[in-house]
Design a protein around this nucleic acid. Structure first.
Length: 478
RNA sequence: CGGGAUGUAGCGCAGCUUGGUUAGCGCGCGGCGUUUGGGACGCCGAGGUCGCCGGUUCGAAUCCGGCCAUCCCGACCA
């Protein structure tokens, strides 16, 4: 074993991540700096995430549409906070058709600035609202330091943009979509997440407030992966989107926006992977079951492959994503390692002895266990075993999070602890940005979330000692 | 944008100090054969503008100058 092993997570997590992403065939660097090529194995995971989200968007009454990638620069300039927030990250097209453009075009970093002026043309009265639209697209953010899946200059996501007649309705939407994100993260990607509100310092530029889900990676760092923003009337005012309300008055519409990106593919890798490679939750695994035939000669080969194909046909008929690895140039041991690297949840081994005894060996990626079952039992049990694996991998991640969540005893112990142990550190905070900034400059940890609903802060601010107003969760983050 | 490092075959590297004629090794790749229950082995073979431009020299992967790119650390970052 480990003839060609990965770097160990415990020794060098970033090296492990880079290697596992490349060797498992998830993605590689693009030819332009800071970009990435999502390869079939990685894109398939994204497609499953996409499906899970899109089904839930439709179920909550949303429709998809698509705005152009290019946004006139003047539109971006209209919302000052938004402009300030994004300015350094903008990619701007200044030449088109060989001529310098009269007005530069911005490659969208997100689409509020082009969607809101358009929404303004579409809304006349409260009867037209709400607009519940979403788009699947790529966005561009020039990054000085990129990391595959986690931060690249171009990435794919969905951005929902809704317009409502009342603030309360918009706030409900923001909460509803955060819940969709939580559900997809936990039930589909098997990543337990904290849900909460961002501090003003971490709020989306132009939003009134931002909600987010945060997952904990296996190196103890947090990853923000889905965000849902209450825009208030900020964008409708900037782009003059008014409607006639029930009282016959012109009113600015209330907005939300929410996004979930391919970054979460990286999150799935880092939340579940181990030293042998990926461990993919069955719900998003491109291949859920791989059948590896074992044989010594042509005669054994044909007998074993016959059984393998039969297993495949039956499972595929039950909508299980199954593959028979009948490549002749690799031996079984090599295939075992390769599919483990790729994170396939279940492996069925079929050799001559098994064929003779009408049995197979089932190997579990999550637990690492192997068991022998009659062929018929094995086929019948696969769906259940996949469901068990989905639960087990979530439980693993949950146990990890619980073991790495610390109650803050004192500022000193927190400052030392967060360096050494990372993980989540929870404690009272006064709500002052000065205290927040002091922590981030002295420890590299930032406030990931504060609770959605007011809770007992549980004591005095860990930084300044004034009365706490809320319980904050700090962590080092990606 | 600062500090450091690296660019030689698809990947990982040696060679450079002390210039010299066919530029090497491992993995991978192609063919043939033996193998196949945890990363097989033998033989044969294909594959290189030595990052780019210029300079020194009879002669440059090697020395000198400039440029470009990538990686790490920092700053920056929803």
């Amino acid at each position: 074993m480990a003839k060609d092993g990965l770097p160990k997570q415990a020794e060098d997590f970033p090296a492990w991540y880079q290697e596992v992403v490349k060797r498992s065939g998830m993605a590689e660097n693009g030819l332009a700096k800071g970009t990435m090529v999502m390869k079939p194995h990685g894109y398939a995971v994204w497609e499953h995430i996409q499906r899970a989200l899109d089904d839930r968007f439709k179920a909550t009454g949303h429709e998809n549409l698509l705005f152009p990638t290019l946004i006139p620069k003047s539109l971006i300039d209209k919302e000052q906070e938004h402009l300030d927030g994004f300015s350094p990250e903008l990619t701007i097209v200044t030449i088109g058709g060989g001529e310098v453009l009269e007005e530069p075009l911005v490659m969208r970093p997100t689409s509020e600035t082009v969607i809101w002026p358009t929404y303004g043309k579409w809304m006349q009265s409260y009867r037209d609202l709400p607009f519940l639209y979403n788009q699947w697209c790529n966005v561009f953010r020039w990054e000085k330091r990129t990391r595959i899946f986690l931060r690249t200059s171009e990435f794919i996501w969905q951005e929902g943009h809704t317009a409502h007649a009342t603030a309360d309705e918009a706030k409900e939407e923001v909460a509803r979509m955060l819940e969709v994100y939580r559900e997809v993260a936990e039930d589909v990607l098997a990543i337990p997440v904290l849900t909460g509100k961002k501090t003003p310092a971490e709020t989306f530029p132009g939003a009134v407030y931002s909600l987010a889900i945060e997952g904990l990676m296996r190196d103890g760092k947090a990853l923000q992966s889905g965000t849902s923003h209450f825009l208030g009337q900020n964008f409708s005012r900037a782009y003059d989107c008014q409607f006639l309300n029930q009282d016959g008055e012109q009113e600015y519409a209330w907005g939300t926006s929410w996004g979930f990106s391919t970054r979460m593919v990286g999150g799935t890798i880092m939340a579940h992977g181990d030293d042998r490679g990926l461990r993919l939750p069955p719900a998003v695994a491109p291949v859920q079951v791989v059948v590896v035939p074992i044989y010594k000669n042509d005669e054994e080969r044909s007998g074993v492959l016959e059984v393998a194909e039969k297993i495949k046909t039956t499972l595929a008929g039950n909508l299980i994503r199954v593959k028979v690895d009948d490549r002749d140039q690799y031996r079984p041991g090599f295939k075992f390692s390769e599919w483990e690297l790729k994170g396939v949840p279940l492996r069925i081994e079929v050799g001559p002895k098994d064929v003779a005894a009408d049995q197979v060996v089932i190997a579990h990626r999550v637990s690492g266990e192997k068991q022998t079952r009659s062929t018929a039992d094995a086929i019948g049990q696969v769906a259940g075993l996949l469901a068990d694996a989905q639960k087990a991998i979530y439980q693993d991640a949950l146990a990890y999070r619980e073991a790495n969540t610390h109650e803050i005893e004192s500022y000193e112990s927190f400052a030392e602890g967060v360096e050494a142990e990372s993980g989540y550190w929870v404690g009272p905070w006064c709500g002052d940005e000065v205290c927040e900034a002091k922590v981030s400059s002295e420890t590299k940890a930032t406030i990931r979330v504060v609770p959605l609903e007011p809770t007992d802060p549980g004591g005095a601010c860990i930084v300044c000692g004034k009365p706490g107003t809320q319980r904050a969760t700090w962590a080092k983050a990606y």
